[in-house]
C-alpha cells in the first residue's frame, strides 16, 4: 500500500514548483501593478522553493519503491 505521506509529498512538490515558477517569472518580468502588498519580498519565490524542497523530501523518503 502506498503511504499517504508520498501523496502529501507530491501535493507539496507540485504546488511548490508552480508557485516558484510563477515567482521566478514575475522576478524576471516585474508587473507594472503587482496588485499585492509586499511584492518586493517575492514571497512566491522563497515560499514556493520551500514547499518544493519539503515535497521532494517526502516523495523520496516515502517513495513506493523504498517502502516495499
Amino acid at each position: 500500500m502506498i503511504s499517504i505521506w508520498f501523496f502529501i509529498g507530491i501535493s507539496l512538490a507540485v504546488n511548490g514548483a508552480l508557485i516558484l515558477a510563477a515567482g521566478l517569472y514575475q522576478l524576471a518580468n516585474p508587473p507594472a501593478n503587482p496588485g499585492v502588498v509586499l511584492f518586493n519580498l517575492h514571497a512566491n519565490v522563497w515560499w514556493g522553493a520551500l514547499l518544493l524542497v519539503v515535497g521532494l523530501v517526502y516523495c523520496f523518503k516515502f517513495a513506493p519503491t523504498r517502502q516495499s
Binding site: 508557485i19 510563477a22 515567482g23 514575475q26 496588485g35 499585492v36 502588498v37 514571497a43 512566491n44 515560499w47
Partner: peptide, 15 residues
C-alpha cells in the same frame, strides 16, 4: 489572502 498573495500563492491560499 488577496492582500499578500499574487499569482501562484493566491491559488495555493484559495486551495
Amino acid at each position: 489572502l488577496a492582500r499578500y498573495c499574487g499569482p501562484g500563492l493566491l491559488g495555493l491560499g484559495v486551495t
